[in-house]
Design a protein around this nucleic acid. Structure first.
Lengths: 233, 233
DNA sequence: ATTACTACTCACCGAGTAA
DNA sequence: TTTACTCGGTGAGTAGTAA
C-alpha cells in the first residue's frame, strides 16, 4: 500500500538506513562506530546506537558488535526498503503523467441518451474488449461545480486514453469515443467517457461501470461523487 | 554536503512532500484537503495542516487555500529536493562499487625502500600524470591490526585502480603498480599503493602523498591512521 | 464543510553513566 | 576505547475549537 513501506514514525530510522547505504553497507560489511554514525546522521551517539538496535529489530541490518565498532551490513530486506523508495521516486520524477486525477461532481439525471449509446453493439464490444467490463446500460452524469474540477477535466484531453473506434450501421454514424479508466467513490471500477460529454458542456462528466452505480453506491441526485481517473502507463 | 539535503529534524515534512508528489503535485496543481492528506501520511488533520504550512515556509510548495481544500503545487525547489534523494539512491543502488572504503592502521617505520621506488622517474612521472601530485619521497607504512581491515584490503583487489605501468632501466625491471586515491586522516589527499605491499605481507598498507605526512599530520610511530580509499567512477 | 490556533501529551532525543 | 542503559527535558503530534 505505502510505496515507501515506511510509516511516519520510523522515518528517522529509515534515514539512518540510507546513511549506512551511503557508506556502502548495501554491498559490504562496513565497520561503523555509533559515534561516527551519529556524526553522519546529525544526532548523538546514543541516538545512533538506538537506531542501529531498531534497524536490527526490523531485520533491515545485521550486526556484529566488536570493541572497535559495529560490523554492519544492510540485509536484503533493508535493501528492498531503499529500492521501494527509489522506484517510488522514479515513478514520480520520470513518469510522463501523474498516477491519477481526482474529480468531484454532483449527480444529476440526464435525458437517458447515455443508455442508448452505451448499448450500441459497435461500442459495447469494444468496451468489453478494451475496458474489461460490460457496461451497465446507462451513464452517471456528474456536474462539475468548481473551477478546479473543470480545469482539471480539460487537462485530461492530452492524456493517453482508451480509444473506442467510431462505426456505421444501416441508419447512422457513431463517432470516436475516448475513455479513461476510473474508480468511483473509492470503490467501483468504471470509466469516464469523453465524446459523449459534448452533448452537455465541458463541465459535465459521464461515467460508465459494470454495475448500476446509483444502486451500488446508494446515490441520489444531488449527491457529491468522487471520480479517480487513472492514467495509462 | 548532505545528499538528501534534509536534516533529521525535517524528515517528516519531507515525507509529506513525497506524498504530495505521489498525488501528482510535481506536475499539476492538485486539490488536497488537510484531512485527505492526513490519511495519506498517516497522521492527524492538524499535523497535515502544520506540515503544509512548514513546507510552504521552506518554499517547497505553493498553496491557494479554498473552502474545498488547498490547491497545492510543488515548486521547482521542492522538486529539486526530491531529485537529490533520487540521485542519492541511484548512486547507492546502481553504482558498481561503494563510494569509499575506510581502513585504519598503526604507523611504523619501514626500511626506507619506499622512497627509492617512489623517486624512480618511470614511476614518478606517472604519479604526477595520473594521480595529479608529485609524491613526497617516502611512503607511510601502516600495519593493519584487525581482521576486518585485512579482509577489506583484500576486497580492494577487484576494484578499478589507477594503473602505473612497469618499466626497465639499464640495471633492472620495475613492476606494474596499482594505486587507489585516498584521503588520510580526513585531511590529506594521497594514494594507497598496491604492488609495493608485497614487500611486507597483506596486512601492510603503503601510502603516498604530495607532502611529508608525518609532519603534516603530526604522526609518530604507533599512531593510528585512518585511510579513506575512494573508488573510481 | 474547510484551515489552523492553543493547549496538553507523549515519544524521542541526549546527558550521564555502566559494562 | 566501545555499546547501550536509565531518566529527564523538549519538541512534535493530537484534541478541542475558533474562524
Amino acid at each position: 500500500m505505502n510505496p515507501i513501506g515506511v510509516n511516519i514514525q520510523s522515518l528517522k530510522r529509515f534515514f539512518t538506513l540510507y546513511k549506512l547505504a551511503e557508506m556502502g553497507a548495501t554491498r559490504r560489511t562496513i565497520k561503523v562506530s555509533t559515534e561516527y554514525l551519529a556524526a553522519k546522521i546529525g544526532a548523538s551517539q546514543q541516538t545512533a546506537s538506538r537506531h542501529l538496535i531498531e534497524l536490527e529489530e526490523k531485520g533491515w541490518i545485521k550486526r556484529n558488535i566488536t570493541r572497535e565498532g559495529c560490523l554492519t551490513k544492510i540485509t536484503d530486506s533493508g535493501v528492498a526498503q531503499l529500492k521501494k523508495l527509489y522506484s517510488g521516486l522514479q515513478m514520480i520524477l520520470e513518469a510522463k503523467y501523474p498516477p491519477s486525477i481526482i474529480l468531484e461532481g454532483i449527480l444529476f439525471s440526464g435525458l437517458g441518451e447515455g443508455a442508448y449509446y452505451v448499448t450500441r453493439d459497435g461500442y459495447r464490444k469494444q468496451f468489453i474488449e478494451k475496458l474489461g467490463f460490460d457496461p451497465y446500460p446507462g451513464t452517471l452524469n456528474l456536474k462539475l461545480t468548481t473551477e478546479y474540477d473543470m480545469k482539471t477535466l480539460s487537462e485530461l484531453e492530452v492524456y493517453p486514453a482508451v480509444d473506442i473506434r467510431g462505426f456505421k450501421n444501416e441508419s447512422r454514424t457513431f463517432g470516436h469515443v475516448k475513455c479513461y479508466p476510473a474508480i468511483i467513490n473509492n470503490k467501483v471500477k468504471g470509466a469516464v467517457l469523453s465524446a459523449l460529454r459534448s452533448h452537455y458542456n465541458s463541465s459535465v462528466l459521464e461515467v460508465i461501470a459494470p454495475t448500476f452505480l446509483r444502486n451500488m453506491l446508494k446515490l441520489k441526485d444531488g449527491n457529491k461523487v468522487k471520480v479517480e481517473i487513472l492514467t495509462l502507463p
